[in-house]
Design a protein around this nucleic acid. Structure first.
Length: 998
DNA sequence: CCCCAACCGTA
DNA sequence: GTACGGTTGGGGG
């Protein structure tokens, strides 16, 4: 029904006509989740999905009226779900029972999107008791019968069963046509078999049961073999795999029911006949009035231009919105922007990316415009002569901003050789809104596929590395030209090895990390998907996968151009969107002080690496092997058979089956746990066998993870180990270390510590380890402002003993170690967002006793409870928490109705400001360390970071002068931004290896 | 060849 | 109870 009730005329549909059917409901959910979540009107009304919807419709209609595009609809309708109650619910009561309530930000947008449809002068259709999909199916089949073509604007797999030679689907967000070949490619079956495939696979979102254990791949294979579901069910006994056969036979009825659920009706009652869907002309003023009411500046302007209307003369429409205060976003700065008039983001060419003085408006307009802007890969060019390259460099200097990406032979920048460089520039010569980006790829190290005795030949039509890098070096090192990239540390390290040191840069990965830590990944793929509605080509697409994959120098230059240029293009677009957003969210300082400078700081640390003594590791490996073998023999002897000790499943069978030991905990898959905790408990109750398993595990763990693996990371040329620090992979702001992970080198056991002796200084130098003492408890004392804790740290007394003394009334002097141990566990528990369950586990005590401890603790330190409560409340209200330097950590699930999920998020939210503030402090120290050492004319080199510890290599003669510089820089790191209420304390010492230095 | 679960190393 | 990454076994392709 068209709620607006505007009279529509109708023209009989005929052969050759083209009907567009937009899956409105599908689009709403997709747009809501795909688009930047922050899009709001100035009064706080969330309109992200509305914005995406309007942009999509406008683009479809503009293309449609542009006859050169080829596909021109004659009829057009937008279809919505009427309500959740449909005939399917009568078939199967659990249908869509899993559906949770729509997000509260989405609720007010349902009505608005229907309003938008009417503003576009399009029929808005919904029918009680039927899903949008059934209406679409009915229209599609009717139109097809007349001989018209149909395009369904959706990417929902449920609609793919409708695809025929005359019925296509179009994914407007990915700009992708879906026809018969695409369905086959994605699902392995042609569209007419989609119903049977879905019936077997089921759908957890809609709660379509399907056959358990059958996924898309298996289903496609079975349909290939048997033709259709009925034949399969009739001949199921021919299936060879036992489990699968039994499964299918047992669930045949479920499959038939599922088929009835997924099969779309083509006989839904239609309130509006096909002929009435004729596409009417745009009513410019009506549409503009609506867009103005929504404050979609960019789109308003575009529509006004296209319709030749004066937008300024049109009053915003009165749009009635049903949304209560609950729908209002909590992070809205209503006071600042409520009264602000909407201003179109005019003239936002590249030159003023950073210069707008209304950041929130600019950020919003940018995100809105870029979310739907088309990415035209056909304009990417390959640069193969120096004049062209010089032109691009000149243009980059004029614009002042260039995005770039360095392609190499390996993902490890220390082992990679440069293969090419892509560049992207904002080009506002054609489009004053600054949306056009042009990009190019400069190949310089591509090889031909044919190899002869001399190896692979050099590919034709490319400049030499010398020519290219010689020209790019001045640009990349020019502090007045901003270089934009994604994960710039890679390019920084790669180019550093070619004597280029990138200066003046922005990294969109880090912008995203600052804006959205905890909300999702920060890879170029996820950022493009989230902010630009575009999925870039994957590396696998160009280089192949698995064994048949090739390094980038073996990729054909044309293909490489599209892949590499796209990355630079996307990085530039993302910077144009995210940089204003940083300003709008007041996160620029976090980005500029805590993130950006670490790119080159960390790159230099990684480049230096650390010496690992191969002999020591080899000797240790031998010792571990011998000890493990001896224990292995005893294990087999006691067990009475040989088995795979490393298999928890087999071990569980031996322990709790054959040997009949009492089982303790279960894993989440229902197996008996064989964790160290369980085995220790068994050992404590007098069984010697589990002890041996624990010992064996320790030895084999040390061997496989450390002594055997580390030598493989020694670089062939530098002879050192170069870890890679990930700047954007934790929610709290900590770094992580990979390939190898040098942040988990053993220390707790004597056996494990030996591995640290293999980390050595070069002759004439020592390793210096400097670590913060109790930094997280100090941060806690600061943020929660606990008088006793502050006093204890000020006086330098044992913090755990003080806690024990407060709680249990035992004097610090002569305190029993068990009492102190418990207090220590409680202190750590507090930092981790304590639960009675967790504390009980940690201390092996009853949960009731743990509850008593916690109660007592809160009585003695009421400020801690206040801190925890207010942190939880802040997180619930804002969806994120903050460190003392303003870094955010998002916890989107903190409002979950599942108590387990919610509690977990609450504990994480309590921990994040503490862990994250400590992480920020050491980041600040690291950024200042190199200048501080330089100022003191010291040659110490910072090599590693392990969360609260920094490791340096220092010349023997400089150690005495260096230690105070390191200590002071670390202890003063919070200043002047934050005056800590407790002093920070750093311990440092020098030795020939890491074990003795720590 | 890829993915997941279980386990365990660090702060 | 927080935050990570790596190895192994095992299931499936």
């Amino acid at each position: 029904m068209d709620g607006a009730g505007a009279p529509r005329y109708s023209i009989a549909m005929k052969k050759g006509d083209h009907l567009f059917l937009v899956d409105g409901s599908g689009f709403i959910f997709r747009a809501f989740h795909a688009l930047p979540p922050l899009t709001r009107k100035s009064d706080g009304l969330p309109v992200g999905a509305v914005s995406g919807f309007c942009n999509m419709l406008w683009k479809l209609l503009t293309d449609a009226r542009d006859t050169s595009v080829g596909v021109t609809p004659t009829h057009f309708a937008v279809i919505f779900d009427y309500s959740a109650k449909t005939f399917r619910k009568d078939l199967y009561n659990a249908y869509k029972a899993n559906r949770s309530e729509p997000p509260e930000d989405l609720v007010p947008q349902f009505g608005l999107i229907r309003e938008a449809t009417r503003a576009f002068n399009l029929p808005c259709i919904e029918t009680e008791g039927y899903e949008a999909d059934d209406i679409i199916a009915t229209y599609a089949r009717q139109a097809e019968a007349i001989g018209a073509d149909v395009t369904i604007i959706s990417s929902d797999k449920d609609l793919m069963q409708l695809v025929t030679p005359n019925v296509h689907m179009y994914d407007s967000m990915k700009d992708k046509q879906i026809g018969i070949p695409e369905v086959i490619e994605k699902w392995g079956v042609p569209p007419e078999k989609m119903i049977d495939l879905q019936a077997m696979v089921g759908d957890s979102v809609d709660n379509v049961p399907g056959i358990p254990g059958i996924g898309p791949k298996t289903a496609a294979q079975l349909l290939e073999e048997f033709g259709d579901l009925d034949t399969l069910l009739a001949r199921a006994n021919e299936i060879k795999q036992v489990k699968r056969r039994e499964n299918i036979i047992a669930n045949a009825e479920l499959a038939r029911l599922s088929r009835r659920l997924v099969q779309l009706r083509t006989d839904a009652p239609l309130d509006m006949p096909l002929d009435a869907l004729v596409l009417e002309p745009q009513d410019g003023p009506k549409l503009i009035a609506f867009l103005k009411a929504m404050e979609f500046g960019t789109l308003t302007r575009r529509v006004a231009e296209a319709c030749d209307c004066d937008a300024g003369a049109i009053e915003p429409a009165q749009v009635k919105v049903e949304w209560g205060p609950a729908a209002r976003g909590p992070d809205l700065d209503a006071g600042a922007s409520a009264a602000a008039p909407v201003r179109a983001a005019n003239g936002t060419g590249a030159a003023d990316i950073y210069g707008d003085n209304r950041p929130a408006e600019l950020a919003k307009a940018r995100a809105e415009a870029f979310a739907t802007a088309r990415i035209d890969k056909s304009c990417y060019v390959t640069i193969d002569d120096v004049e062209d390259l010089d032109d691009w460099i000149r243009a980059a200097r004029e614009t002042g901003i260039v995005a770039f990406e360095a392609e190499g032979t390996s993902i490890d920048p220390m082992l990679s050789e440069i293969v090419g460089i892509s560049l992207a520039l904002a080009d506002n010569t054609h489009n004053p809104s600054g949306l056009d980006v042009r990009a190019a790829y400069v190949p310089l190290g591509h090889k031909t596929g044919s190899d002869d005795l001399l190896g692979n030949g050099r590919a034709d039509n490319q400049l030499t590395a010398g020519e290219v890098l010689g020209r790019l070096k001045p640009l990349l090192e020019d502090t007045s030209v901003l270089k934009v990239g994604h994960n710039l540390k890679y390019a920084y390290l790669l180019l550093k090895r070619y004597e280029i040191e990138i200066k003046a840069y922005d990294d969109v990965m880090l912008m995203s990390y600052v804006l959205e830590a905890g909300k999702g990944g920060h890879s170029l793929d996820s950022l493009s998907d989230r902010w630009l509605g575009h999925m870039p080509a994957s590396f696998k697409d160009v280089a192949g996968t698995g064994k048949s994959s090739v390094s980038f120098d073996m990729v054909e230059i044309d293909r490489a151009t599209v892949y590499a240029a796209e990355k630079a293009d996307l990085a530039l677009r993302l910077a144009m969107v995210l940089k204003p957003w940083l300003t709008a969210e007041h996160l620029t300082r976090v980005y500029e002080r805590l993130e950006r400078p670490l790119v080159c700081t960390l790159a230099r640390m990684e480049e230096r690496g650390i010496t690992v003594d191969r002999q020591i590791l080899s000797r240790l490996s031998g010792e571990l092997a011998q000890k493990a073998a001896a224990i292995e023999d005893e294990i087999y002897r006691i067990a009475g058979e040989r088995f795979t000790i490393g298999s928890p499943k087999q071990l569980g069978d031996i322990l709790f089956g054959k040997m009949g030991l009492p089982g303790g905990a279960k894993t989440k898959t229902g197996q008996w746990s064989t964790s160290a905790q369980v085995l220790e408990d068994l050992a404590a109750s007098g069984h010697e066998f589990p002890r041996k398993i624990v010992d064996w595990r320790q030895l084999t763990k040390l061997k496989s993870t450390y002594t055997d693996a580390l030598p493989g990371y020694i670089h062939p040329q530098t002879r050192r180990v170069h870890t890679s620090y990930s700047l954007a992979s934790t929610t709290t702001g900590r770094l992580s270390s990979v390939e190898p992970n040098l942040q988990n080198i053993p220390i707790r056991t004597a056996e494990g510590r030996k591995i640290r002796t293999a980390f050595i200084s070069t002759p004439g130098n020592k390793l210096v380890s400097a670590d913060y003492s109790q930094i997280e408890l100090r941060v806690l004392a600061h943020v929660a402002d606990i008088p006793q804790l502050r006093q204890a740290f000020a006086d330098g007394i044992d913090i755990h003993a003080m806690t024990a003394s407060e709680m249990f009334g035992v004097p610090v002097e002569g305190m029993p170690s068990e009492i102190r141990r418990r207090a220590k566990a409680i202190n750590f528990g507090i930092i981790y967002g304590i639960s009675a369950f967790g504390l009980a586990n940690q201390l092996s005590i009853e949960r009731s006793e743990a509850s008593e401890y916690i109660k007592k603790y809160f009585e003695r330190f009421p400020g801690i409870r206040d801190y925890m409560d207010s942190t939880k409340e802040f997180a619930r209200e804002h969806g994120y928490v903050e460190t003392i330097f303003g870094r955010r950590a998002y916890y989107p699930d903190i409002r979950s109705s599942n108590p387990q999920v919610r509690s977990f998020n609450e504990r994480a939210a309590i921990n994040a400001p503490i862990q994250g503030s400590a992480a920020d402090i050491i980041r600040r120290a690291m950024v200042r360390m190199e200048p501080a050492l330089q100022a003191a004319k010291l040659s110490a080199r910072m090599l590693l970071q392990v969360h609260d510890e920094l490791i340096f290599e220092v010349e023997d003669g400089e150690i005495d002068k260096t230690l105070p510089v390191i200590i002071t820089t670390m202890e003063q790191a919070a200043m002047p931004a934050i005056a800590m209420k407790v002093p920070l304390k750093v311990d440092a010492r020098a030795a020939a290896n890491w074990d003795e230095a720590h």
